[in-house]
Design a protein around this nucleic acid. Structure first.
Lengths: 236, 236
DNA sequence: ACCACCCGAGTGGTCGGACCACTATGGCTA
DNA sequence: TAGCCATAGTGGTCCGACCACTCGGGTGGT
């Protein structure tokens, strides 16, 4: 008879759903400050410990942000906030799943590059060129990797879809690429990578979407094929 | 001088990173059982409360799975486990971001459908047809939605990339589509949806990737355009 | 009147312990 | 031998205390 006790799942899970629902229904706006942990616990009729677990869960999901000594706030719920967790997938995937992930990236990256070719502004293009030259001016793998990431990041942003850019960012996270690169660049793929980047840049300058799509697909596809061959060799 | 105390961030965050690292380094295999919460807390030198928060965080990320009374286990780390959080993004996004998300889905869904046209087996095709007829045989929006989801799910699976299928699943989660459909289907889009599904099915039967890509892109694009017009009207 | 400083109330972060709910295993009983 | 069941061990929940940090208002000096 107690309508307040459907009792499904753990209390923490229920608290997570309650808060998610509040945000979904618009009762909590982005950037807004939540009641204190202690108050929230009382409101939902659970202990502060359980409430903290719920808050921690929503924090790692990029929905909430806890500031020590200040309070708990709803994030802006932008692509960057919510898709940060996507990096975890890339970091923990392995073997065949890594290849699949790279295939997804190839599809999105080629489309994003094609869109960028049609929409990129001269300012953005200048930024892309900056990373391209910086990338070619050093031999430090760390620096190269950083500019490589920024190179593609800038292009994805120029495509005009922040959500897609955020996903691609996750699919190219530092640890993910570092893992793949470790063996890849030992096969003299440096020069090839530079040629591919140059081809992408040319297509952008020419504002040729089809050429850009092809160049980007080939670029990611190279790594993808190499990885595919590596996975096959993993007999263990 | 104390090398055991780099002291970066909260202890809970450190615990999360430690466990993630253990899995990344292969010290924890998929399916393996972890030490008890109490033991883990001692090992990492933190309290059980903090350790529980870390475990809860990794649980919602789909990395760990806690079974009451039994223990904590590493998931299989498959696409489905890790990409479940993708649904949260779809559920909490709104306005322009929803359009961007649908654009991503259009890109992936069209490619997946094209791949499926080339690779789908007769068994899988029969399954697709089952959902297609079931979807056309009822007027119950709930049932239609369920079969619609399964229809696209089956196609994505036939494309041979489980990771992509899992992402598309998240991008088509129940609450996400229910929200969009609420107003969409009131404009007599039912008949159109059926025609589009039929077109996709025809392309699959004909094993025509290009036709399949076009049909899928048009299908998602329809909803996307409608949503785009709705967002523009939201003056608030 | 202004400003820099300081302090205390309020907040999230951490801890330890207690107890509850559930699972699984082994021995005991029929 | 088959089935039951007591029990140890596990995750789930709660409590209360204290720590670390933020922030705003009061205080003192200029």
């Amino acid at each position: 008879m107690d309508e307040t006790a459907p009792q499904k799942g753990t209390v923490t899970q229920r608290a997570i759903d309650r808060i998610k629902a509040m945000i979904g229904e618009g009762r909590l706006e982005p950037g807004q400050r939540l009641p204190t942990e202690r108050d929230l616990a009382v409101q939902l009729g659970i202990s502060r410990s359980s409430m903290r677990e719920a808050i921690r869960a929503l924090t790692v999901l990029g929905v909430l942000e806890a500031r020590h000594g200040s309070g708990i706030y709803v994030t802006q719920l932008e692509a960057g906030d919510l898709l940060e967790t996507f990096g975890v997938v890339a970091d923990l995937s392995r073997g065949p799943q890594l290849v699949e992930l790279l295939e997804v990236r190839r599809i999105l990256e080629s489309t994003a590059t094609a869109l960028a070719a049609a929409r990129i502004t001269s300012d953005q293009l200048a930024e892309v060129e900056k990373h391209l030259t910086a990338m070619n001016a050093t031999e430090d793998p760390e620096v190269i990797l950083a500019h490589d990431l920024a190179f593609h990041r800038e292009i994805a942003t120029a495509a005009g879809n922040e959500t897609m850019a955020a996903i691609l960012d996750g699919l190219s996270s530092r640890t993910f690429r570092a893992r793949v690169w470790r063996g890849y660049q030992e096969e003299g793929a440096f020069a090839r990578t530079r040629r591919e980047h140059a081809a992408i840049h040319r297509a952008l300058v020419a504002r040729d979407p089809e050429a850009a799509r092809a160049a980007a697909a080939a670029h990611v596809g190279e790594v993808e094929q190499w990885l595919r061959s590596q996975v096959v060799d993993e007999v263990r």
